[in-house]
Every structure is written in structure tokens, then in C-alpha cells.
Design a protein around this nucleic acid. Structure first.
Length: 484
RNA sequence: UCCCCGGUAGCUCAAUGGCAGAGCGGGUGGCUGUUAACCACUAGGUUGGCGGUUCGAGUCCGUCCCGGGGAGCCA
């Protein structure tokens, strides 16, 4: 047994024969360099999507290993006596190793196929109870079998695209000199977002401390929560390393049941020293454009699938985003445009009020037909940390809206002036004592800085056209749902 | 949390208050370089739960549970 790349202790020098896995080639690599493998003997491993039997001569097995959307057609000649036992057990969902020669295919639908010399069944799947069929399932049904749904075309493609987007985001920021910072999951900052937050405690709710301050006996000796954003901590490192980003899970305990919200989601949050709102907008635009290009260029096969079966518009939207500059619209102008549009909205538009989802969609999908960066919102609508503009009525906030998905980015230039920050905290009813460290950043070497948050799941929804956010995260957490 | 729609076979869905159905999937047999394969036969049901109206309820009423869409919150 030779493992030139591994060193074992003497006692483990020989492993049992059956612990040695054969390493097959990924089906994506077979298709990626088709001509190079034709006529060669290869080993593949994967799961059976379908099998079509020809009692007269051969069986056709569609084998998928998840490396790409396409399955490999395996040809099993029935003349081999050893197949008599294994072929009947090859059912949809079962797992196989197949060895054979890759040949060009005489049939329609695929350029190459594998002539099986040897078939090894890893695990059988009982067709009477295996839930995935050779047909289209509803997303609602697939959510109930989240342990099997990545074996479907749509969910598998979504997982691959999510991976490319995650990697693409890291690459985008790393190429620009950003440092990846891990901000805490558990935090004691409880009022940064107005929304509901998850409590972190080791106390037993069935047996709370009898009296006194319950937190004294709790793990952190104070109230603690799951983070709703890494921004405030990212600012600390931006004011030391210049360009930083966080990329991690985020938690919101809102009782919101929509196709765009999760209780646990992933967010990338860049934070940049010496960036004003315009720099911030430029970076956000470059980032979204780069993600659109990655989808178009590096996920072509999965994109083709989404365009065909999920959302016909997805490709043209991506091309528009990749090519055209974003429309930057001050909030005040947006209100004017909406008021003069003559469009009948369910909610009236008034300066000082939040724009409704219908207003945002109208702007990005009807008026401008491309991504829109809304900036300079009324001060009263936005959190304390956003920088107050010279008019003292608005803050240097920005929301990026994209056609089809709506808000995908929220960000701002941060308030770096100590006196203005303290005034903002007072207006918003936030105690500087609870944010002593945040205030001190303005006392010691404060600089102008900016940042934004980009929701990974919203991004994946945007580039795939998948309508419900619960399909673009492997294990969705929503009110009443934490299975798997 | 609010508004709307829905819950019937493993899945996707039909069924004027009057016999519980189809397609797909499963099983059996047949046929074929097949590819959403095809043909025949066959098994498969507490119509989400509870209560009510009625001679009779999948259908009407009440209530609860679950799911979806929209809204709000936001990523």
C-alpha cells in the first residue's frame, strides 16, 4: 500500500484493503476536456438520476456527481453476466462507481458516453420510497426533504452558484487589497438595528434565577445576542487596516415570512477608511457588476438552466447590469419622480417617508430599467451612525436596487465627527455609555469612512432568478423552521 | 404580525352538496440506441385536525394547525 503523500505511524502503516477508496474523475472534468478523454478508460462516481432499460441489449444510466449540471450517460451491455445481479438494483437515487471507456455517442442529447466495463453499487435507494422522481417537484415539497434536494438540478445548480458567488466576493475584495476580518457572532450591542434579535444565554428558561439580576449568573454576566451586523466592529479594523470586510452569518429574529427574508443569512460587509459616499457607491457598483460577470462567464451552464426553467429574464438582466452604469438618484429626486409618474401606488409617496417595495421596483424596473443607487435619505429614517449631510436634513446613506430582486445592498458613509455622532445618538435615544468604544474611535484619530452590506442570498437570487430565498441557502431558518 | 389563496394517492393536480379520479412515480409483463422513452395490467385514500349544518359534506359554517403569495421590517 503506497501513500507517498501521506505519512503514517508505524502501527497504522497498513490499512485494510477495503478502506482504500478508488478516486474517480469528476464528470465536470470529463465534459470540460471531452476530446481528451475519448477512447480512454476512466472511473466515475455519482448518483443515478434515471435508468432506461433496453431488455434487448443495453441499459442507459444517467449518472450525476454534482460537479456540474449535466449527467453522464453510462452504457451497460446486458451481455455481461455479472450485470445480471447489479443492474436490477440500479435505481434512481442509488450511488455507483463505473469504470469504462469514454466514447463519442451515436445518440442525441450528449456528445460522449461511458461504456461500462465494471459497475460497483455503493448504496441502493428503494424506488418505492425514494422521494425524488424523474419529474419536476414543487419547491415546497423539496424543502421538506432538504437532505435530498441538492440532488435535484435546480438546488444543485443553486448550491454551485452560491459557492461561485462566495468565492467571487472574496476574490473581488482580496484583489483590491481588502483584509478579511472575522467579527463576533455573539455580541452585546443590542440596539444597532431596530429589529428583533436572538438572545444568547445558558440560563434554563424553565428554571430562571429566583430573584435579583438574572444576568449575574448568566454566561457573559450581561445580556448577549446573536449579531445582526458586523459593521460596527468592522469599523474598528477599517480604522486600523484601511480596507476590510467581514463575511459571515447574520441573525434577525423578525417574524417575517417572505420570499426575501431569513432568520439566518450570510452577508459581506466591506468597510473602508478614507472612502466617502461616492467611493462607496463606486465600490458597490463594481462589486455587483463583477458578480454579474462571474455568473455570465463562470456559471454558464447553470445560468442556461435557470434561464430555461426558472426565469427567462435572468440573462438579459445580468447583461444589463454588467454593461450599464448604475443610476444614482438622491432620495429627494426619487420622491419627485414617483410623485410625477402618474402611477397609482397602493401607498402614497411623501418626502420623509420610507419608500415602499412597489416604489423601489418601479424605479429600477420601469423608470431606469437598470440598477439604481438611492442616496441621501432623510435623517429620521436611518440609524445613528450614518453621516449627516450639510443640509442637516439627510444622511449619506445608499440603497442599491436591482431589477427583479429589489434592495440588494444597504450602506452609508459613517459619521466620523464626534460632536455630530453624539448628537445623533441623543436624537435616536442611544446611550454613548453602551457604545463607549465606538465613540472613542471618533476621539482618537477619526477619519472619514464608509461601508455597505450585501446579502449573499439576495445576490444568489438575483443571479439565478430563483424566486424564494429558501432555495438559495442549504438549510433555511425562518419562523417556525429550524429542521435539518 | 396583517391581507389573500390553498391543504384530496408517494408527487403534481381534478371532482354542481349525491359512487374518490387523472397524469407522473411504484410493482408485473411486453417492446425499443434509449434520453420527460413507449404499450398493457396492477397496487395505492382517515380528502390537514376537531366540532357543526344536512337524508347525505372533499364540497357549506366555525375553529385550530400547516403551506404558499403579497405587505411591513430589512440583506
Amino acid at each position: 500500500m503506497a501513500f507517498p503523500d501521506l505519512t503514517y505511524l508505524e502501527s497504522n502503516a497498513t490499512l485494510p484493503q477495503d478502506s482504500i477508496m478508488e478516486k474517480g474523475i469528476r464528470i465536470a472534468d470529463l465534459f470540460g476536456t471531452e476530446s481528451g478523454f475519448v477512447g480512454k478508460k476512466v472511473v466515475v462516481q455519482g448518483w443515478v438520476r434515471t435508468k432506461r432499460d433496453s431488455k434487448a441489449g443495453i441499459s442507459f444510466i444517467e449518472l450525476n456527481d454534482g460537479s456540474c449540471l449535466r449527467s453522464l450517460q453510462v452504457i451497460a451491455g446486458l451481455e455481461r453476466p455479472e450485470y445480471a445481479e447489479v443492474l436490477p438494483k440500479i435505481t434512481t437515487g442509488s450511488s455507483l462507481l463505473v469504470e469504462g471507456e469514454l466514447t463519442s455517442s451515436p445518440g442525441k442529447g450528449q456528445s460522449v458516453e461511458l461504456q461500462a466495463d465494471r459497475i460497483q453499487l455503493y448504496g441502493w435507494a428503494d424506488p418505492a420510497v425514494y422521494p425524488l422522481q424523474k419529474k419536476r417537484h414543487s419547491f415546497e415539497f423539496l424543502r421538506q426533504i432538504a437532505h435530498l434536494r441538492p440532488r435535484t438540478n435546480t438546488l444543485g445548480a443553486a448550491a454551485r452558484v452560491r459557492n461561485r458567488m462566495s468565492f467571487g466576493l472574496h476574490r473581488f475584495f482580496q484583489e483590491r487589497g481588502f483584509h478579511y476580518i472575522n467579527t463576533p457572532i455573539i455580541t452585546a450591542s443590542d440596539c444597532e438595528g431596530a429589529g428583533e434579535i436572538f438572545r444568547v444565554t445558558t440560563l434554563d428558561p424553565a428554571q430562571p434565577p429566583a430573584d435579583g439580576n438574572p444576568y449575574e449568573s448568566d454566561f457573559f454576566a450581561r445580556p448577549a445576542f446573536l449579531t445582526v451586523s458586523g459593521q460596527l466592529q468592522a469599523e474598528i479594523y477599517a480604522l486600523a487596516l484601511g480596507l476590510v470586510y467581514t463575511f459571515g452569518p447574520t441573525f434577525r429574529a423578525e417574524n417575517s415570512n417572505t420570499s426575501r427574508h431569513l432568520a439566518e443569512f450570510w452577508m459581506v460587509e466591506p468597510e473602508m477608511a478614507f472612502y466617502d459616499l461616492e467611493d462607496n457607491l463606486r465600490l458597490a457598483q463594481d462589486c455587483i457588476k463583477e458578480m454579474a460577470r462571474i455568473m455570465l462567464n463562470e456559471c454558464a451552464e447553470d445560468l442556461e438552466f435557470f434561464a430555461r426553467f426558472i426565469e427567462p429574464e435572468v440573462r438579459s438582466r445580468l447583461e444589463t447590469v454588467a454593461e450599464s452604469p448604475f443610476e444614482i438618484v438622491p432620495y429627494t429626486d426619487a420622491v419627485d419622480i414617483l410623485k410625477k409618474s402618474g402611477e397609482k401606488f397602493a401607498f402614497p409617496v411623501e418626502w420623509g417617508g420610507d419608500l415602499q417595495a412597489e416604489h423601489e421596483r418601479y424605479l429600477t424596473e420601469k423608470v431606469f430599467k437598470r440598477p439604481v443607487g438611492l442616496i441621501n435619505f432623510p435623517r429620521s429614517l436611518k440609524p445613528f451612525y450614518m453621516r449627516v449631510n450639510d443640509d442637516e436634513k439627510t444622511v449619506a446613506a445608499m440603497d442599491i436596487l436591482v431589477p427583479g430582486t429589489g434592495e440588494i445592498i444597504g450602506g452609508s458613509q459613517r459619521e466620523e465627527r464626534l460632536d455630530v455622532l453624539l448628537e445623533q445618538m441623543k436624537i435616536k435615544g442611544i446611550s454613548p455609555d453602551d457604545y463607549k468604544w465606538y465613540v472613542e474611535l471618533r476621539e482618537f484619530g477619526s477619519v472619514p469612512h464608509s461601508g455597505f452590506g450585501l446579502g449573499l442570498e439576495r445576490l444568489v437570487q438575483f443571479v439565478t432568478g430563483i424566486p424564494n430565498i429558501r432555495e438559495v441557502i442549504p438549510f433555511p431558518r425562518t419562523p417556525g423552521h429550524a429542521e435539518f
